[in-house]
Simulated assay, not measured.
Amino acid sequence: MVLPERERRTFWIDGDRLRTDPVPGAELVVDGSWLLPGLVDVHTHPGTESRDLPFSDEVLRRQLTDHRDAGVLLVRTPGSAARIPAWVDQDPALPRVRSAGRWLATPGRFFPGFGRDVSEADLVRAAVEEARSSSGWCKVIGDWKHGEPAVPLEILTAVVRAVHAIGGRVAVHCQTAEGSRNAVLAGADSLEHGMHLDPDLIDRMAAQGTAFVPTLSVFGAGADRRRAGEPSAARDAWLAGWAGMLPNVRAAHEAGVTVLAGTDSLPCGTVSTEVAWLIRAGLPAQAALGAASWAARSWLGLPGLADGAPADLVAYDTDPTLDPTALAHPSRVILRGRVVA
């Protein structure tokens, strides 16, 4: 059974492509399972394990392999400590990667030296450079600490216009009301986190095609620790922002915003946890699953399960839309036409 269509279909694999016509000499590898296009994590940062350690090719390979073994066959890295090296795309055993180059951080708005530190005056030029040197994306740290100003709207708007002019796309980190507002008004292609998002901006996001990547699992994992912390303005602001995130995710989905699954956390390969959070926020199970599979692949420019599509798919013994916990336990993983797990 193929999702999302819920149709009984048969595919053959010819090289690294799916075919609907029989391929001579084919070997049966999956029978009677639920088939999904390869899973997607649209917000993950493989290659680093902490801010104290440098970007590492060894860590990058291991973490991408963790994604792959969990059925995540396409990842988007919205910012890294270093540009993703070319060998990743040349390795058939690793997931497909869509990168955004290095994080772009203006003074005081990120961990010093962890991304690419640029002045506000140089931000437009740097954004175009990162988009051109990556998979067409760039990532701007649009805000940082509570009570401190976000990247000004006019600068962020200029970034979006310049990157769009070369055919690129802009992701914006935003965790304050001003940062989320500016990202939407500037026409960013995706809000990363979107904490403190004004619900009145959701219809505008839908109209202009701004996607919402709320990374609920990483926030949810830290919520109890925040509540137990010493009272402060920053703590109270964070908790207020978290309280609004699940209702905003549901409202965004209902308004037609593209809501996508991204983990922003370690270990890699846990996108099933993010899907569970999207369901908890109020998304129907099929929509939450699509946010980590067919909808995410389409948003990143790849088809689902169709004749001529890349042979990237995962198989399950049970219907993951009826039992979302099954998503963490694929029975078969096929990447570029090869059985890898």
Rank of each mutant, 00 (worst) to 15 (best):
R109D: 02
R280A: 07
G25Y: 15
L327M: 11
G108K: 03
R6T: 09
A188Y: 02
H146I: 05
T44H: 10
A287W: 02
V172I: 07
R204W: 04
A261Q: 08
W144A: 03
I141N: 02
P85T: 01
A292C: 05
H253G: 09
A82T: 00
A121W: 06
T157D: 13
A255S: 06
T270F: 09
V257Y: 01
F110C: 05
F219Y: 12
R336L: 13
R132L: 08
A26L: 11
T273Y: 12
P112C: 00
E130K: 01
Q208W: 09
D21R: 15
E27C: 15
F219L: 14
V159S: 11
E230F: 15
A328H: 06
E192F: 06
G115L: 00
H173P: 08
G47Y: 02
G209K: 11
A228C: 02
L64P: 00
P4W: 04
H45D: 03
G301V: 03
C138F: 04
R76H: 02
V151D: 12
G115I: 01
D312M: 14
G269Q: 05
T48Q: 08
D264W: 09
L53F: 09
W144G: 05
D122K: 03
D16K: 13
A291W: 03
P54T: 10
S190I: 06
R204C: 15
T258C: 14
G308I: 11
A93Y: 07
S135C: 13
R102M: 13
D143V: 07
A70W: 08
A292W: 07
G194R: 09
Q90H: 07
G179I: 06
A292S: 07
R68H: 13
V42E: 07
A131Y: 10
W238D: 01
D122F: 03
M195E: 06
R8F: 04
T210D: 05
H329G: 10
G244D: 00
A291K: 11
A127G: 09
V259L: 04
C174S: 14
S50H: 07
D69A: 12
G187F: 10
T48F: 10
E5R: 01
G241W: 01
E230T: 15
P303T: 04
H196Q: 12
V97E: 05
L278D: 02
A127N: 08
V259F: 07
A287N: 04
L185V: 13
G290H: 02
V151M: 12
V97F: 04
L302M: 08
S298C: 08
D41S: 02
A70L: 07
A183H: 07
L260Q: 06
H329Y: 12
